[in-house]
Design a protein around this nucleic acid. Structure first.
Lengths: 187, 187
DNA sequence: CCTACCGATCGGTAGG
DNA sequence: CCTACCGATCGGTAGG
């Protein structure tokens, strides 16, 4: 197990490790884990074939480092999705369904204020989705993805019934999980 | 290039090739193309390591055979999605939006007839999604996937404007393609 | 479809 | 972080 490289120097510190993680992420996405060799990764950052093992004990530890970078954004999306389902279906909150379906009846003056709130909410989603897209976990255009995902969730107001009904015996946790499964391209 | 095996026999004909394709599909899904060896595939159907090359010139031809089996269902979904967007937004057809949003105003008697039509339509989607799910191209539960995908498309009635507007400068072909990209886990 | 095998590549290591 | 290298595995082939 290697300790820190050079002790005291003014030159670039050890972003070499970060370089490896970033390049590995790109190559794993392009060619898959097994399709990418340590040699590919090493040469892409200007190292020789054996050198990455100075930073990582083996290839799988490199994969772990890559995946750990992707987890925060995925977890954030999971929470956004779950929360939105919750707003829609939990505790008989009728506010959102009304907003979704009787939106047109609102005078322009009030509409503007609602739009402002909605824009702020959308921005949170967009940041998360942009990040996931950059990491290759979201295959569609991030902006359209936001519209489609929120559309899918919002439309559940049409068919989801929390307690009653037949085949809809799905909890909100499960529903959120399935939405993520549908939409997130995790390897 | 091999010709047909045995000439005239009553025993099982050459489903050996089909066996290879089916098993390869499963293993490629589980472990990826590069993570699956010809030896894995051969042994899984009770052959020795070199024998698959009697049926396929090389490993990539096996991959091609697997993918060709997945294409029909994916293409069918692509058409369903594109057609549904078309119904929603093309040629100023207001029928579907009205049905989506003023559904409640319909007396039960008429509702039943509409439901019957809708059930038939849903069944077409369901068959396609079931198939894609079985092939690992759809990661969510197939029934929920149908609800979510149709939800995402239907909700576009809320934000998509064919000709006017600013950022929505997306054609229906592009929109359909992005929906597929979001939802289908193609390698 | 099997036996026996080859050349190439890959993950990983020793020693500096 | 480099040089030099090893053992194992893999895709593919010859000959039957």
């Amino acid at each position: 197990m290697p300790a820190k490289p050079r002790a005291a120097s003014s030159a670039p510190p050890d972003n070499r490790r970060a370089d490896l993680v970033r390049v590995a992420a790109r190559l794993f996405r392009e060619k898959g884990f097994d399709g990418t060799t340590i040699r590919d990764i090493a040469h892409a950052v200007g190292m020789r074939s054996g050198s990455p093992f100075y930073h990582f004990a083996n290839k799988h530890e490199l994969l772990m480092a890559v995946m750990e970078e992707g987890l925060p954004a995925a977890e954030r999306l999971r929470r956004l999705v779950r929360t939105h389902y919750g707003i829609l279906h939990d505790t008989g909150s009728d506010f959102i369904p009304v907003m979704l379906y009787d939106w047109r009846s609102l005078p322009a003056q009030y509409k503007r204020r609602i739009i402002e709130l909605k824009d702020r909410y959308d921005a949170i989603w967009q940041r998360t989705l942009d990040e996931l897209h950059a990491q290759g976990l979201l295959r569609a255009d991030a902006k359209l993805a936001r519209l489609m995902i929120l559309g899918a969730i919002n439309f559940s107001a049409t068919w989801y019934r929390a307690k009653s009904r037949s085949a809809n015996r799905v909890g909100l946790d499960e529903l959120a999980a399935q939405t993520i499964a549908l939409v997130l391209h995790t390897p």
